[in-house]
Measured scan of single mutants.
Amino acid sequence: LKGYACRHCFTTTSKDWHHGGRENILLCTDCRIHFKKYGELP
Rank of each mutant, 00 (worst) to 15 (best):
S14F: 01
P42Q: 03
C31V: 00
L27P: 02
I25N: 04
T11H: 04
H19W: 06
L27C: 06
T11W: 01
R7W: 07
Y4R: 08
G21E: 08
R7P: 04
R7T: 13
L41A: 04
N24F: 05
R7S: 14
I25H: 08
S14A: 06
C28S: 00
C9M: 01
K15V: 10
C31H: 00
G39S: 07
E23I: 03
K2V: 13
T29G: 09
E40T: 10
R7I: 07
N24G: 13
T13L: 06
C28Q: 00
R32N: 11
L41E: 04
T12H: 02
C9P: 01
R22M: 07
R32F: 14
L27D: 01
C6G: 00
K36P: 03
H34N: 06
T11P: 01
G20D: 15
H8N: 15
K36L: 11
C9K: 03
E40N: 09
N24S: 13
T13S: 11
C9Q: 02
G20P: 03
H34L: 04
C6H: 01
T12E: 07
G3A: 12
T13M: 07
K2Y: 02
H19A: 12
E40K: 12
G39D: 15
K2I: 05
F10I: 03
R32H: 12
C31Y: 00
H8D: 01
R22E: 13
D16H: 01
L41Q: 03
N24T: 05
Y4T: 11
D30C: 05
R7Y: 11
W17L: 07
Y38E: 14
F10Y: 10
C9Y: 02
Y4M: 14
R32S: 13
C31Q: 00
K36G: 15
F35T: 06
K15N: 03
T12Q: 08
H8A: 07
L1Q: 05
H19M: 14
H34E: 05
I25T: 12
I25Y: 07
G21Q: 06
W17C: 04
L27S: 01
F35C: 07
D16T: 03
A5F: 15
K36S: 14
T29R: 09
L1F: 14
E23V: 03
K15F: 07
G3I: 05
F35S: 07
R22A: 14
T12Y: 01
Y4G: 06
F10L: 11
R7C: 11
E23Y: 01
L26S: 03
N24Q: 13
D16M: 02
C6V: 00
H18S: 13
L26K: 05
G20I: 08
G39M: 03
W17E: 07
T29L: 10
K15L: 08
Y38M: 09
G20F: 05
H34A: 12
Y4W: 06
Y4N: 15
R32V: 08
K15R: 11
C28V: 00
L41H: 02
L1M: 15
R32D: 13
H19C: 12
L41Y: 06
G21R: 03
R7G: 14
T12K: 09
H18C: 12
G21F: 03
L27K: 01
H8T: 02
R32K: 09
C9E: 04
C31E: 00
L26A: 04
H8Q: 04
C9W: 01
F10V: 03
F10M: 10
K15Y: 06
H18R: 07
C28K: 00
T11G: 05
I33Y: 13
F10N: 05
H18F: 13
F35V: 11
F10T: 10
T11I: 06
H19Y: 05
C9L: 01
K2L: 07
C9N: 05
K15M: 11
Y4C: 09
H34S: 12
H18Y: 10
G21N: 01
H18T: 13
H34P: 00
W17M: 07
I25M: 08
G39I: 01
N24P: 05
G3Q: 03
F10A: 15
H19Q: 13
H18I: 11
R22S: 11
G3K: 08
A5H: 14
I25L: 12
F10H: 15
L41T: 12
C6D: 00
S14L: 01
T29Q: 10
L26D: 05
T13F: 07
T11A: 09
